[in-house]
Design a binder for these strands. Sequence first.
DNA 1: ACCTGAACACCGTTCAAGT
DNA 2: ACCTGAACACCGTTCAAGT
Lengths: 217, 217
Amino acid sequence: MPRADAARNRRSLLDAASAELAAHGLDVSIARIAARAGVAKGTVFNHFPSKEDLVAEIFGDRVAGLVALGEGLRDAVDPGSALLQFMTAGIELHANDRSLCEAAASISRADPRVREASEGLAQVAEDLTGRARRAGVIRADVTGHDIVLLFNAAAQAAAPLGDTVPGLWRRYLHLIFDGLRPEAAHQLPVAAPTTEDFNTAAQNARANTLDQRNRHR
Amino acid sequence: MPRADAARNRRSLLDAASAELAAHGLDVSIARIAARAGVAKGTVFNHFPSKEDLVAEIFGDRVAGLVALGEGLRDAVDPGSALLQFMTAGIELHANDRSLCEAAASISRADPRVREASEGLAQVAEDLTGRARRAGVIRADVTGHDIVLLFNAAAQAAAPLGDTVPGLWRRYLHLIFDGLRPEAAHQLPVAAPTTEDFNTAAQNARANTLDQRNRHR
DNA sequence: ACCTGAACACCGTTCAAGT
DNA sequence: ACCTGAACACCGTTCAAGT
């Protein structure tokens, strides 16, 4: 059973880290986060093994929120607009958080928490995509994994101008969504990625970070 | 007039940095680059004011190469496939260079060299896009700026699985390209970004990095 | 005019000492 | 059981001393 002040500190740290990461991106210093939470620098490592682990926890929470939202959309009357709403929510997550954009490629699936959340995301994305596909509003060769990668892409497309033209990502979301319609479908040159592919990518990422750890010794 | 060994060191540094950045991404250490180039750590700062400046130089060179390729495509017989080839080349640049993916958002247009190269890129992208538009192979509401942001997006979409499924980016390039076709065109909710938007975004980026410099004092 | 390596400020992380 | 702050290794950057 955790001590009262420890539980409080943990919450403060998560809140502080969440805000600082969103505002300043992945390279905020631990010192800054600790100061905002009102604890000593060392305390951070008492609650989280490493900085990467701290951001993975927050990252996982955000993704879990998106999963919950997606699950609420599985019974929507219009499968097409449900899918669009899901993608919109996914991009908004990125648009409101600088660190998410930067983390999308690197941290991603090395951490088990993020792994779990990502699998949930893949599942609900596949559900929504399948419904839209069967309703005939999107092409037959697009999968849930495609959808996740594509709303990431839309967020990244607008990111360089994110602060200057706030809603620009909507343009690229709709442009990409037009590419998902059956009317425009041309044969794709490469098959969709499989869950297997994501797993081996996760293992590679894990191996890489372990290499870096070892170099420190 | 530069001394002979200085010119040689500069070349070695650029070559070493280019290779190390491509292989290990933006956070390779200066020490590593210097070692590969066979010079002392301090020599790096004799040739480049900062690490950021060094990567900006390389970044600028890469983009300039893409501009040259694009210019060669302006007279191609098929404007549609010329545009697709241009986007392909742009993504391949990212696919072969880890640092480019990471740098795309952050460094981008703060440095004057990168600014200049990016403006050249915008110009040739607009040329190719205009031809394709007038030939009726892409929709009327898409601009050269869109094209640049979109092939960046396609590269980023596949980046998490880049090492695991090597050619995956082709899937997303073609998916996005299908969204550019007139057949699927639906009204877009936001106007295309202007050159003006890119300029003010560049100024904001510059202001941010200057803030960070000042914090060091 | 340029190279070098020691020195500096900063960062993530560890840990002995406190409570 | 947890907090703290000093200590460590590492990084980008500066600079006095060399050639």
